[in-house]
């Protein structure tokens, strides 16, 4: 029923979305904790920076990343000349592009969940001699885990639908970096609307299931 190209696009989409969600999970939890619980200065600056990908068009974010990590870029040159690694136009680049775009979504949801954790509980743990790290992983994180999971699913969904940054940084290479949205783009460009609609249908089911799961998890937190 599905062509090999379509199956490959679905597989690459899933692979990229799972990896980018796992990739951003640790740093996003850390940043969420900093924003929700710490009293360092410049929090609004950090928050603004984290949210930048939401404000910029994904194509623009993708272009910045391309300038940064291509062989002529500041970071890319080091990778290429010293290590022989070239990230652009591989599926790693698709992961990176999705990760940057999805990052603020995870932080927004996880931060709110952490802010809702009662500081009295954390203070109680602290007075009983728990280190900040222990307070975090025995009190704050377990009590906000639903928010973290819901945020992760949201980030996963956003990665599934990522187009602009991905096509800039990873290209549109069937079998390597062509995700569902990129395959749909190609179908539309070449007038293959039936194939395009099939992929749109699959993407809709995937996104609906993931968003529905996120919704059920986060509505349970409030009750």
């Amino acid at each position: 029923m599905l062509s090999p190209e379509e199956i490959s696009a679905i597989y690459i989409s899933m692979k990229v979305a799972v990896c980018s969600t796992l990739l951003i999970l640790p740093p996003a939890i850390f940043i969420s904790w900093v924003l929700a619980k710490s009293s360092i200065r410049g929090k609004s600056f950090i928050e603004t920076l984290v949210n930048m990908p939401l404000a910029l068009a994904p194509v623009v974010s993708g272009f910045f990343l391309l300038i940064l990590i291509s062989r002529t870029g500041v970071v890319g040159r080091i990778l290429y000349e010293d290590l022989g690694i070239e990230l652009t136009f591989t599926w790693y680049a698709a992961v990176l592009a999705s990760a940057v775009i999805a990052f603020p979504l995870l932080v927004r949801v996880a931060r709110v969940a952490m802010e809702e954790v009662d500081p009295k509980l954390e203070n109680a743990a602290r007075t009983l001699g728990a280190s900040p790290w222990r307070v975090f992983y025995t009190v704050t994180l377990p009590l906000s885990i639903r928010g973290v999971i819901a945020g992760s699913i949201l980030a996963f969904t956003r990665s599934l639908g990522e187009f602009g940054a991905t096509i800039m940084l990873a290209g549109n290479i069937p079998g390597k970096t062509q995700t569902i949205p990129l395959a749909v783009f190609n179908c539309v460009q070449t007038g293959h609307e039936d194939e395009g609609l099939r992929l749109v249908f699959i993407a809709t089911i995937l996104a609906f299931s993931a968003l529905f799961a996120a919704q059920s998890i986060s509505s349970r937190t409030t009750h």
Binding site: F63, I67, T72, G73, G76, G171
Partner: peptide
């Protein structure tokens, strides 16, 4: 146009 810009920025084409 996009492909051209990518090549200018060092894409491995």
């Amino acid at each position: 146009g996009t492909l051209c810009r990518q090549i200018q920025k060092g894409a491995p084409a």
